[in-house]
Nucleic acid binder design. Structure first.
Length: 474
RNA sequence: GGCCUGAUGGCGGAGUGGUGACGCAGCGGACUGCAAAUCCGUGCACCCGAGUUCGAUUCUCGGUCAGGCCUCCA
């Protein structure tokens, strides 16, 4: 099965061809850890986690290397550390832990490498040195600047012609720059700020060089896929590309494919800390299962913008409920049954294949979801046909397809009963038992009274052939 | 000002030159003591104008609207 990906550089979808199928490399720009990350920050995390999973399915788990960096020195981190009177590492560690916890709750696997700027300083200064030697950078007033004139293709990724970028620039140009588009590779630290030694004096790296150096250090240039948010195309990725090529590592190529996810909007505007319209993943995870948030983040194709609303999350939750119900019903149906082995094709084999097929088409998650539902329908039909072998096989396929996308990892019963502690559970079970007695005695008013009581506890009862089941209503 | 996306039913959201996915919500029915879940059935859309075509939601051009980048930003 062919994997096709959309490349920002060529503006086309094309079959993916890694340079070495036994060592596929993926890099995604990670967080600056100075605060809790908002849900929009996690869109690329979830999207590229999905890509990571799909790549592993195509090339084998051990053959895909995924690096996502951590920016752990930056003005905002410095400021926060100064406010609290602690080292920047304290701030960075705190929010990196929170970030990784949130990412895990959203079903993201840990990247193979998670390099930190402060631990990659030698590689960073080394690469700046390479650029200076190659005449791709120059020193001016204690700064080292990248010389955009040295890279003829500058602007090719973003499609921004050089002249127009200057004409439209809305920032003051530092006087020591040879060209307005030149950008900082190394800058002196102000007194009291963290600084590192370098051949150009003590200071700290510019933002763009960090990624290029970490990519080279962790994966080696050139890489197969470079990902990130659409906003990073210019200037960040444009600059990374220029640095990488001019550094002399990896030849003319920096990344084989450039992938960019669209933004998350809230009330028709992008979610951003400066606009103040943020929803922290950390807070959302208090009220919603991580899988529901993950589903919501994948509800649209990754390149499209996504409107983040409560309705979106509710619908995502409802979608997952439907799949979990099938799993739950399968479990009930299979309970106590000896399932015969056999080579008979399980329910939903074709639909199972369709899931990977849809994902392999530039991560078409909506189509993958559709295939997942069709697969669930096949399992449902097998339950109704009382075909234990088909149910067991189909259930396995549904689970596998869901897991591939990072879903259906919860125990089905637990999915519906999460939010109930043991006290509540035993109370619910007691009421259900009492209601069963009332129903056996055909005391309908009493049975309905108990159901109302359960409803007051936010519990929904479902009478089935083999007794009543329940779940927490949302 | 320059560059770039997008516009599909009540909602989310794929896709396609000709039979308009999928899910949520709605409606009718079956099942149920009544519900819920489930099953069966069902209504509802392709921004506007022009062009190409036997035929366009799908291609081309123009317009309108929305959003993004050009500045820290996923």
């Amino acid at each position: 099965m062919t994997l096709s990906l959309y490349d920002t550089m060529s503006r086309r979808k094309a079959p993916f061809a890694p340079k070495d199928p036994s060592r596929v490399t993926l890099y995604v720009c990670g967080p600056t850890v100075y605060n809790y990350a908002h849900i929009g920050n996690f869109r690329p995390v979830v999207v590229f986690d999905l890509l990571f999973r799909v790549l592993r399915r195509h090339y084998g788990e051990g053959h895909v290397l995924y690096a996502a960096n951590v920016t752990d020195v930056d003005d905002k981190i410095n400021r926060k550390a100064a406010e609290e009177g602690v080292p920047i590492k304290t701030i960075a560690d705190r929010y990196l832990d929170a970030y990784n916890a949130d990412a895990a709750a959203l079903g993201a696997l840990r990247p193979t490498f998670q390099p930190r700027v402060t631990e990659t300083m030698d590689a960073i200064t080394g690469m700046i040195g390479d650029l200076v030697r190659n005449n791709g950078a120059y020193e001016a007033e204690g700064h080292v600047l990248f010389d955009t004139q040295a890279f003829a293709d500058y602007g090719k990724l973003s499609g921004h012609p050089m002249d127009e970028m200057i004409a439209g620039a809305r920032v003051d140009v530092a006087p020591y720059k040879r060209h307005p588009a030149d950008f900082v590779l190394w800058k002196p630290s102000k007194p009291g700020e963290p600084s590192w030694p370098s051949p150009w004096g003590d200071g700290r790296p510019g933002w763009h060089i960090e990624c290029t150096a970490m990519i080279h250090e962790a994966l080696g240039l050139p890489i197969d896929i470079h990902g990130g948010g659409i906003d990073l195309v210019f200037p960040h990725h444009e600059n990374e590309l220029a640095q990488g090529v001019c550094s002399g590592h990896g030849g003319r190529e920096y990344a084989g494919v450039w992938m960019h996810n669209g933004f998350l909007n809230m009330a028709d505007e992008k979610m951003s800390k400066s606009l103040g319209n943020v929803a922290l993943a950390h807070d959302l995870l208090e009220t919603w299962p991580g899988e529901a948030l993950r589903w919501a983040l994948l509800a649209g194709q990754y390149r499209q913008k996504l409107e983040w609303t409560d309705t979106l999350i509710e619908q995502a939750k409802a979608n997952l409920d439907r799949l979990y119900r099938v799993l739950d019903d399968s479990d009930r149906f299979l309970a106590g049954k000896a399932v015969p082995d056999g080579a008979q094709s399980p329910a939903g084999a074709a639909e199972h294949a369709d899931v990977l097929k849809a994902l392999s088409d530039d991560l078409n998650t909506p189509e993958a979801f559709a295939a997942l539902f069709q697969l669930a329908d096949r399992v449902r039909a097998a339950i109704m046909a009382k075909d234990a072998r088909a149910v067991a096989g189909g259930r396995g396929l549904l689970l596998d397809a869901g897991n591939l996308m990072g879903f259906l990892t919860a125990d089905p019963q637990g999915w519906f009963q999460s939010g109930a502690d043991d006290d509540l559970k035993s109370r619910i079970e007691g009421l259900i038992a009492a209601r069963a007695d009332a129903r056996a005695a055909k005391d309908w008013p009493q049975a309905d009274r108990i159901r109302d009581e359960l409803a007051a506890l936010n519990v929904e009862v479902m009478d089935g052939a083999s007794g009543a089941t329940w779940r927490i209503k949302e």
